[in-house]
């Protein structure tokens, strides 16, 4: 199979958007990063909240946490995105609906994609954190109780600092998954990296070059995520633990 490489394609003007093909890729790259960061923040907060909820000695709280996780684990991401864009606005009260539809359409879609992707990833983080908290030795909690600490204090000062350290490695892979999952948002009209790739395939007729360029884009994001997480892991690693100082 012979391929006539044409890397110059990226510097040619794109058919629309008043930019080059490289400009298309760059804007998709930025969109993937924006979407991932904002969804990541939601995922971390919501995941932490429900993860802690699921470990509390209260049946009601743990049922709520379980319901959240099961709903997001058993329904494909694309359907969550469709629900947030097409269904949720329909069932909201009139005033909120108007507010949403008054938004810039592209911002509306970005907002909904962020929420859907954030909640979806949050369900995974919730499970990781719950497992981490439950895998801490029971004696740690007992030692806190024996010292007279309250449950809130035990979580805040003893359980969570250790659970978050344990959760860092799986958190890294959840974040990487989330970056990849952000590509699914192209189905509801977010023009991120993979959407730009398919536009490139359509207009530029240089499939191999386009594919390689986009793959490199994802690799760059992956490396950034991994380096950031490695840095956090290194900074929070305890002296005397495996690999510590």
């Amino acid at each position: 199979m012979h391929i006539a490489w044409n890397w110059g394609i990226f510097f040619q003007p794109a058919p629309f958007g008043d930019t080059t093909y490289l400009g298309w890729l760059w804007s998709g790259f930025l969109m993937t990063i924006f979407l991932s960061i904002s969804a990541g923040v939601i995922a971390f907060i919501v995941g932490s909240f429900f993860g802690i909820l699921r470990t509390l000695p209260n049946r009601f709280f743990s049922i709520i946490g379980t319901a959240y996780v099961e709903i997001f684990r058993n329904i494909p991401l694309i359907i969550h995105l469709f629900v947030w864009v097409y269904v949720i606005p329909e069932i909201l009260p009139e005033s909120m609906k108007e507010w949403l539809f008054d938004l810039e359409p592209s911002f509306f879609i970005f907002l909904m994609a962020t929420i859907a992707l954030g909640l979806f990833t949050g369900a995974r983080i919730c499970e990781q954190l719950r497992t981490a908290i439950q895998s801490l030795p029971a004696g740690q909690k007992n030692a806190g109780i024996a010292l007279g600490l309250t449950l809130r204090q035990i979580y805040l000062y003893i359980l969570l600092p250790n659970a978050y350290r344990r959760v860092l490695p799986p958190l890294t892979s959840e974040m990487l998954n989330m970056v990849k999952n952000s590509a699914v948002a192209s189905t509801i009209g977010i023009v991120e990296l993979s959407k730009q790739a398919s536009q490139l395939l359509e207009h530029a007729s240089t499939p191999y070059e386009s594919f390689i360029a986009v793959t490199i884009g994802y690799i760059i994001i992956n490396i950034c995520v991994m380096k950031t997480m490695q840095y956090i892991e290194k900074r929070t690693r305890l002296p005397g633990s495996l690999g510590g100082k």
Partner: peptide
């Protein structure tokens, strides 16, 4: 005082 010390590792 516990069998496994239960110092807080962090």
């Amino acid at each position: 005082v516990f069998q496994h010390f239960e110092l807080f590792p962090h």
